[in-house]
Design a protein around this nucleic acid. Structure first.
Lengths: 225, 225
DNA sequence: TTGAATTAATCAAACGTTTGTTTAAATTAT
DNA sequence: ATAATTTAAACAAACGTTTGATTAATTCAA
């Protein structure tokens, strides 16, 4: 009985995935610590204690502390590849529908991965690990340009006003980022207690999406409600 | 002859200011390094070499590395105290004029102190130095609320649409912050070479102010141009 | 005004810790 | 038995900070 249970829990495919699972486990804790204390502000021993593993395991699995950061970014690279290309190709949607979809998508995904998002932006702001900084600068800039291309198409079609397309994208992304900077500050402007978690609050998510859409619509569209 | 010259150069008040000048000199270099590499990412020896002073001087003048950060923030506290209270009291200006003035003020001051701004936001994002994080959270949230109060007044007067006032402020500040995150990324979205300094470019400053005003006007005002 | 006494500033060297990383032995899984 | 995993211990290098000596600047009595 117990044996069969054990076999069930530790089925072959489960065992083969163990290394991956442990790596994922360490990466999750690393993201949370790096997001709050920064890369240099988090020691290997801090991380090992937080993830309940031996200090040597980080180098055993990832090679070095810096390669751990690269592993995190590579692992979540899918996070970066967003729906922009997919939406750009879709001819069934109007430009404003595409923009609305992107706003919803950005807010949802950033909030769902709040720690990872903060970790990414800290790496983007930091020039110390030059390769990573360059990679993230490129990725973020490319996304912004692709987003702006949709706005440009709307302007060409005369359904949008002649706005500064790249700065409009900057405003949309900047609006989301601004509330992600500090949970503490976010709670204060929302008049919520420090115990509140605004990043897993559906009401706040809805409110933020509504606000950004409202601003962007007024900015882009000729007709106002 | 020589003696009188020496006396002129090292006049009493000049000598008394020497310590202050050296402190300011160290703080300037610290802001630049902390902004690019972070607090933990910058060693006392890095800073001493960059500022061309002995390693012991930082602790001699500031007491510790952490107290250096506190000294920088206290010294530039005036930077935080912005024109909001002054503008709130001013009855000669309309609400939209006050908002326009604040947008110009924010963009100008943040761009003029780009390094300091990045340093401040890194400290705001980091929870490791708890007191500083709390102080900055409070200061930034208070400013946002005061700004939002002006928008609320405009809504009461029926000259503004019934917008989400605090999130509107979040968008304004977030728009500015988004371009300050990375010089590299900023140049890429502006299609400028890496050698360009967007933060001391009057044309870009004007463009950013124009864009934000344009968005906020469309968002707040009933009549569109 | 001069010269000893006092204070402030600067320095190289060293302090004890903590850092990221490696090792080699022990354990576990196949 | 073999290979993969985990461990405690040890590593050199880097860290923030302190030290004690040295120099420069200031004070003040004579």
């Amino acid at each position: 009985m117990i044996n069969s249970n054990v076999c069930l829990i530790f089925a072959p495919h489960r065992i083969l995935k163990m290394a991956t699972d442990k790596k994922a486990h360490i990466m999750e804790h690393a993201i949370a610590l790096f997001a709050e204390r920064g890369f240099e502000g988090t020691s290997i021993r801090d991380l090992a204690a937080d993830a309940s593993v031996n200090v040597a395991m980080i180098n055993y699995y990832f090679g070095s502390k810096e390669k751990l950061v690269e592993a995190i970014i590579e692992d979540k690279a899918m996070y970066m590849k967003d729906r922009i290309e997919e939406l750009e190709a879709n001819t069934n949607l109007s430009e404003i529908e595409k923009i609305d979809a992107l706003i919803e998508d950005y807010v949802s995904r950033i909030m769902a991965g709040a720690d990872f998002h903060k970790f990414l932006y800290k790496e983007l702001m930091d020039t110390k690990r030059g390769d990573i900084h360059q990679f993230l600068s490129d990725a973020f800039a490319r996304n912004s340009k692709n987003f702006a291309a949709i706005i440009e198409r709307g302007i060409e079609k005369k359904i949008f006003k002649e706005v500064d397309s790249i700065l409009t994208v900057t405003t949309i992304i900047g609006s989301i980022n601004q509330v992600m900077i500090s949970k503490n500050m976010c709670n204060q402007i929302l008049a919520k207690p420090n115990t509140n978690d605004p990043y897993h609050d559906e009401a706040f998510k809805t409110r933020l999406i509504k606000h950004i859409k409202s601003m962007v619509h007024a900015h882009l569209l000729f007709v106002n409600l």
